Amino acid sequence: MKQPSINIRNKRATFDYELVDTYTAGIVLTGTEIKSIRAGKASLVDTFCIFIKNELWVKNMHITEYFYGSYNNHTARRDRKLLLSKKELEKLQRGMKDPGFTIVPTRLFINEKGLAKLVIALAKGKKQYDKREALKEKDDRRDMARLFKR
């Protein structure tokens, strides 16, 4: 029996930030955390990444406690370590040195092998007028799609 595909997105990331470069990272999880993710009980709202002692950590990622977890259950918003190659970590650290840049998670999914992966992006914050422009473009695309459907 095929497992349903898990694809949890951070929709605010593309609205608030201009994504410059993306990376796919592994996550260090406990047993109950991966079970909750497979059940689709995770959220990337208000999530961000920081470097602590040359290691990349994701902060504020919410993974709901596993229903059958007993005393082994995890804390819902604990910090989780991300797994990337040394070259990728160095590239991200260089990118973070520029003012206005940050690392935001954009997508959480489970790959073919059953491992949880987090797509992160080096991003630059958008100004308010850029956000308004993005909304106008989105509305225009929607209107054009409606016209061509008729």
Rank of each mutant, 00 (worst) to 15 (best):
41 K>T: 13
139 D>C: 02
136 K>M: 03
62 H>T: 14
90 E>T: 07
42 A>L: 06
111 N>V: 09
149 K>G: 14
108 L>A: 12
149 K>D: 10
85 S>N: 08
129 Y>A: 06
78 R>T: 09
28 V>Q: 02
16 D>K: 10
149 K>F: 14
43 S>K: 08
8 I>L: 05
46 D>W: 05
146 R>D: 15
39 A>R: 02
108 L>R: 05
143 D>T: 08
74 H>C: 04
40 G>R: 06
17 Y>K: 02
78 R>C: 13
60 N>L: 04
117 K>E: 11
143 D>S: 13
59 K>C: 05
58 V>A: 04
94 R>S: 03
57 W>F: 08
92 L>W: 05
33 E>C: 04
69 G>Q: 11
136 K>S: 07
54 N>K: 09
124 K>P: 15
103 I>F: 14
101 F>G: 02
106 T>M: 02
88 E>C: 11
34 I>Q: 14
132 R>F: 12
127 K>D: 13
105 P>D: 15
56 L>W: 08
150 R>G: 02
12 R>Q: 14
80 R>E: 01
113 K>P: 00
67 F>T: 12
123 A>T: 06
103 I>H: 14
42 A>D: 07
32 T>A: 02
50 I>N: 01
64 T>V: 14
31 G>K: 03
141 R>A: 13
21 D>F: 10
137 E>Q: 06
14 T>E: 04
30 T>G: 09
101 F>I: 15
13 A>M: 01
20 V>W: 07
111 N>H: 10
147 L>V: 05
8 I>N: 00
65 E>Y: 11
44 L>W: 06
58 V>I: 15
20 V>H: 04
106 T>W: 11
58 V>L: 07
101 F>C: 13
142 R>C: 13
124 K>I: 15
54 N>I: 01
69 G>V: 11
146 R>G: 10
43 S>F: 00
138 K>M: 06
20 V>F: 06
97 K>I: 14
37 I>Y: 00
63 I>R: 10
10 N>E: 00
137 E>R: 07
55 E>M: 05
111 N>C: 07
123 A>H: 10
107 R>V: 03
84 L>V: 13
3 Q>M: 07
19 L>E: 07
123 A>C: 12
61 M>C: 12
142 R>I: 11
47 T>S: 05
99 P>S: 11
28 V>W: 00
64 T>L: 10
17 Y>A: 09
148 F>A: 14
122 L>H: 02
98 D>I: 15
136 K>F: 03
91 K>C: 08
96 M>S: 11
134 A>S: 03
25 A>D: 03
96 M>Q: 13
34 I>E: 05
49 C>W: 00
115 L>A: 06
31 G>T: 00
108 L>I: 02
118 L>S: 08
57 W>E: 00
81 K>C: 06
124 K>R: 15
116 A>C: 08
17 Y>H: 03
45 V>P: 00
51 F>P: 02
88 E>D: 15
93 Q>D: 11
22 T>F: 08
54 N>F: 00
11 K>V: 09
19 L>P: 06
